[in-house]
Structure formats: C-alpha cells, structure tokens
Nucleic acid binder design. Structure first.
Lengths: 138, 138
DNA sequence: ATTTCGCATGCAACTTTGTTGCAAAAAGAT
DNA sequence: ATCTTTTTGCAACAAAGTTGCATGCGAAAT
C-alpha cells in the first residue's frame, strides 16, 4: 500500500508529502467517492483545511481523481482509473446516486452511451447520472 | 406570457407574487438552465437573495423546475415539462453546457439513451449532461 | 550528511454561497 | 375595506471555498 501510494505520486511528478500520502490512502481504502468534508473528518484535523483543498485540486489537475456530479450539489471526488491522463479523463461510466442513503456509486461497468448532437455543438465531456434506490436500500 | 405565468402558478396553488412571476418569466424566456447567480444578476437586485433561494426552493417542491447535476458542482435549475408532476419528473433530454459562454442549453430533441444497470438498482431519474463548445462559441 | 532551492503547508483574512428567525408587507378570501 | 395567511426583506449567522505570504519540508546535488 505504501509502495503503491508512492508510485502513484511519483508517476505524476508530485513530491511525496504527508498530506498527499494520507489523502491518497483514504481514496484507495474507501473504494468509492469522498466528499471534502469526509476527508477533513478522517484526517482528524491533522491537516489544514486549505491543504486538503489544494491537495484535491492538485490530484484533479493530474488526473488522479475526478469530480462526480450529485443531485444535492455537494462535491464528490473519486479515484480515476489508470487510463486517465492529465487534462483528459476517461471517466466514461455512469454514476448512481441513491435517494435514500445518499451514497454515490461508480457503475464502472456501465458505459455512457453515445448520443448524436445537433450540428455545431462540439462535445468534450459526457456525464450521466442515474438517481434511484441502490441494492441495499430498496 | 403574463397569462401563462399566472396559470402555472395558480395550477400549483401558489399565490402570484412579484418575485415568482419574474423568476418564472426568466425561465420561460431563457429556454435553458439557470444558475442561482444568473437569476440574481438578471433580476437586477430587485429581490433579496433569500427570496430567490426560497422561490427556487418552492418551485422545486412543486415540480415546476428541477436541478441539473454538473461536474463542476454549480447548481443549475431548469423548467420541467408539462408532464412533470410533484416529485416525479420526465425531463428526458440531454443538457449541453458551453464551457466558454457558460450557457446551458436544453437539447430537447436529444433523448437520453437507455442504459442497463446492474441487478438490484432501481432507477428513478436519468440525467445526461454534455459539456463542450456551443455553435456560437466554437 | 549537509546544504540549497523550490514546492507544499499553515495561518489569517476574506469572499462567496446558503440558512434561519422575526417583523413588516403583500396576497387572497370574506 | 378588513381580516388572515403567506411571502418578503432584513440582519445575523453558518458553511464552503479562495488568496497572499511567511515558514517548513522534500528532493536532489554537493
């Protein structure tokens, strides 16, 4: 785990620091999406709020994590798959938001289908979000 | 237009007030999605910030508008179609957000394609948002 | 191992966004 | 016109996110 974390950071030309290691560890352990607040709580106030924001921002820019749209507009972050590169994500799967437990789930196997846009539109990024009840809540 | 606005409000058992008429008018004119900030700007500070929030909240509860999740986590609101009823929307078209002019456009003719979810998930609502450049900005 | 340099961090102050309670004002009904 | 209920504006607050700057730590070279 330690080695994996270091490798990810090095691969992205990021220096290996305490907050980066810890926050990355949280993502690897949680295998789901995290809100900024979650991260602050779980780091136990070991890092400054600003540091958490900046670390997330850095990870976003490097393509290590991506944001997930939610219906209540809280910001969620999740690890990108290996094939994400700087500035260009391949986060082409559908996200599911449970209305009961409010969890956001990456449906990694459900790809976003192609749509044909009217002439003139130049698409860059596709997002698809399904809300409903997850398996555990229904 | 005036008559149409009144009708919508009456149909939803809402008293017809200045801010409701104005905000509803904005939605009808803009045939797209609006952020809370847009509304504040376009009403020219005629209404209190709090009033705008509460009006949007009321419209949401009545099913007159719905929120659109975006990946950058700005809150967007859009008019529901006539067949939306309280708590159950049929807003089945794709939304396009231009990265340059920041406008959100309802692609009313582009329907959200069906996706097959893993077993156990009970879908209720589908949202699809495409970001990129609109015809005017490219 | 020590030094050096640049990047990351913490702090403080600030901005932006959204919420709550309450009194005044406007809508709707009689 | 008057009464009742709902909506609005104000003020104060709470939460979320940003910026500038001085300090401290990581990485690489000596």
């Amino acid at each position: 785990m330690e080695a994996q974390i270091d490798e990810i950071l090095r691969k992205n030309q990021l220096s290996v620091t305490g907050s980066r290691k810890r926050i990355l560890e949280l993502f690897l352990m949680s295998n789901g999406a995290l809100a900024h607040g979650d991260i602050e709580k779980k780091t136990g106030e070991k890092f400054d709020r600003v540091t958490v924001y900046r670390t997330l921002q850095t990870f976003l820019e490097k393509g290590i994590i991506h944001t997930i749209p939610t219906s209540d507009n809280s910001v969620l972050y999740a690890l990108c798959k290996d094939n994400c590169s700087e500035g260009h994500h391949h986060d082409d799967h559908v996200h599911f938001i449970c209305q009961k437990c409010a969890k956001t789930i990456c449906l990694a196997d459900v790809h976003i289908p192609q749509v044909k846009l009217p002439g003139g539109f130049l698409p860059h990024d596709y997002q698809m979000v399904v809300t409903g009840l997850c398996a555990a809540c229904r």
